Computed example of a mutant assay.
Amino acid sequence: MNLQEFPRQIYTEFKTPIQPLCHLSKRLGGPNIYVKRDDLLGLTGGGNKTRKLEFLVADALKQGADTLITTGAVQSNHCRLTLAAAVKEGLRCRLLLEERNRKYNPNANGNHFLFELMDVEQLKVVPDGTDVVKEMEAMKQELELEGRNGYIVAEGGGNDIGAMGYMNCSYEILEQSDEMDLKFDHIVTASGSGGTHAGLVAGIHTSKADVSITGINVRRSKLQQEEKVYGIIKNLSNRLILQDIIPRKTVQCFDDYIGPGYALPSEETINAIQLLAQTEGILLDPVYTGKVMAGLIGLVKKGYFSKEDKVLFIHTGGTPAIYEYASTILNKENNPK
């Protein structure tokens, strides 16, 4: 599928590497695990939202926006990268932070420090359960009253426009597989706002590649998340005018590794973060990638993969947030809140 007809801003001028996790694979006794280093993507601190923002910001510029508006949790990687994209494009940015199991701390490290460093124009904090879509619409209307043009970036870039970033990523993975003479049997990814998961499924399906994609949920139940991801796929299919219907069964999620809740790491999450740091020197975060790696390890132990399978773990980033969780990750506190 050719996405060149859609506007795109380039924020990463290279393919992110695919690397073998030899020590981790040996520790687990197979399968053969590899990592796609999307934590090394462009913009401030890297991460999967960069791929989505290439298409979302291009759409904003096409519509003449002067300000980006988006939302996320108090340590949102998506908010960090949306702000970074705004800075790069000479736009302003307003952020709506939702307190999901973590209270807002104005003196926090991690992404909050970066919000301040990059000079966010407005930062509004709301309690968990707030209708964030309605709040962002209100922020857009405030800008209109000032004679400005705001563009609402969907939470996490989780819509059909953002998902095109991970259709592109799937093509990149298949190109690298050919170059490396390596065929992956499974791809394991975080499934949160849904755009990453949806884009990978759509890209692999339209390429007719025989690769299974497994999402590890970080927030919602299995059924809720699968419906959310498939909804994005249907919208994406309509946008791209795909003739081949992508089956519902291609969306597969597990909700066994969410732990106590969104942004609250379980013991398995902490163990996975420590294990990858100590075997491969790669950093994971406790909100997304730590839970996904815990899920991958859990599935290995359950026999979900064969010993000979080649499994690709998508590292979706989140590194700046880990510094706010330092005591939790090092087991120096009992309360992850």
Rank of each mutant, 00 (worst) to 15 (best):
I33W: 07
H315W: 12
M167Y: 06
V133F: 08
F313E: 10
N149M: 08
G162H: 13
P7T: 13
L3S: 08
D59H: 09
Q252Y: 14
E267T: 14
L21M: 14
T250P: 09
A163G: 05
V87P: 10
R51P: 05
G90N: 06
F113Y: 15
A198W: 06
E227Y: 10
E142L: 03
A190K: 00
T12A: 06
E13P: 05
V188R: 05
L40P: 01
F305E: 11
V133M: 12
G46H: 10
D131L: 02
S221F: 08
T12V: 07
I246S: 04
T67R: 00
A326V: 06
K249T: 15
N105P: 14
Q75W: 04
D131T: 00
D119G: 09
Y34F: 15
E280G: 05
Q141R: 11
Q252C: 14
A73M: 03
I246V: 02
L91H: 13
D59G: 07
L24I: 11
M1T: 07
I273G: 09
A326D: 10
K291F: 01
L223G: 13
E142S: 10
K310R: 15
E308K: 00
K291M: 00
A321N: 09
I322P: 10
S221M: 09
L95H: 12
F55I: 03
A294R: 01
E333H: 07
P106C: 03
G318S: 11
P20R: 00
N334I: 05
L117I: 01
